[in-house]
Write a protein that binds this DNA or RNA. Structure first.
Length: 299
DNA sequence: CATGCGTGGCA
DNA sequence: TTGCCAAGCAT
């Protein structure tokens, strides 16, 4: 039967998006699939405001996957700058190589081909197929999850991991027409990013406030399992970040002494350096006696 | 399935 | 100030 809830929800969200969508460089008719793909990698856990400038310089330098694939991985890591999680730069480079080798230099359109690329999981594959190619896919990112949890389920925040029920709900709400489904996906994401935010949602400006189960229930507070925080001070993550910052800002290799100055705790420093080398983010520069003297971005 | 993985802005 | 959070992925 033609339940009023979904269609009213669709109309409200799509109309809202029509009026309020941000004009982002990876949206719109002039954006290439590669531009969309680069944006999706950069936006994994990194806010739009910080992605914008790097995305621009990245595409200027590497307008195609083939252009990136021809460069050393270290150049990608350096250009990644301070977006964080630099392994994403490595994976984007590896994905570009795979696209050059397996797909004739063209970003593949199918979910399965995309999913097979390094650094591409369910979300990113769905997003690229949907936004760059207008295909019909459930796009379940943190924004969409939050919006649907509130509007449909009546809870403040989604569970730590995607549940079967959650995916079923998202699937049932996906418009049948591919183009509409793609717009629905980006529109629900945008609503979560701009209005239905995690901490202080702007329910007054929300186009679906009248349909929202969470609002109707009186905004009950989150009561699920404790959400995982991220320790920082003194962690390997901070240590690795500091070493990588040195490597990025240094032309050539970083002498061991400078790394020791940047992180005095010897055991942890060694562990992190070994990890960075194992990840492919750094290479060790040795003497003829096989003694490590410096570290550098891979060239 | 839980964990590790950067970085910075904001309340 | 100190958490919390931001278009996840790989293992």
């Amino acid at each position: 039967m033609d339940a009023p809830f979904p269609s009213a929800l669709h109309a409200a969200v799509l109309d809202w998006y029509d009026d309020h969508a941000r004009d982002l460089p990876w949206r719109g008719v002039e954006a290439t699939a590669w531009s969309v793909m680069v944006s999706e990698f950069m936006l994994q856990q990194t806010p739009v405001a910080r992605v914008l400038p790097v995305h621009g310089t990245w595409l200027e330098r590497w307008p195609t996957p083939t252009a990136l694939a021809a460069e050393p991985t270290g150049e990608a890591v350096r250009m990644w700058g301070r977006l964080g999680y630099p392994r994403r730069a490595l994976r984007l480079h590896a994905a570009a190589v795979a696209i050059a080798e397996r797909h004739g230099g063209e970003v593949p359109a199918s979910y399965d081909d995309l999913l097979a690329l390094p650094g591409v999981g369910d979300y990113t594959a769905s997003a690229i197929a949907s936004f760059a190619f207008g295909e019909r896919h459930v796009v379940l990112d943190t924004n969409v999850r939050r919006v649907l949890t509130r509007v449909v389920s009546g809870a403040e925040l989604p569970s730590p991991a995607v549940t079967r029920v959650e995916r079923d709900v998202a699937t049932s709400l996906l418009p049948v027409d591919p183009a509409t489904a793609a717009t629905w996906a980006v529109a629900t994401m945008e609503l979560g990013a701009l209005v239905c935010t995690a901490r202080q949602p702007s329910c007054d400006a929300c186009p679906v406030a009248g349909l929202c189960a969470w609002r109707r229930a009186g905004f009950p507070a989150y009561d699920g399992p404790p959400r995982r925080g991220q320790a920082w001070a003194g962690t390997d993550r901070q240590c690795r970040g500091r070493i990588m910052a040195l490597a990025r800002e240094t032309d050539g290799s970083v002498p061991l002494g400078r790394i020791e100055g940047a992180w005095p705790v010897a055991e942890q420093r060694q562990r992190c350096l070994a990890g960075l080398v194992a990840d492919g983010l750094l290479v060790a520069i040795g003497s003829e006696l096989d003694e490590v003297l410096a570290y550098a971005l891979p060239s």
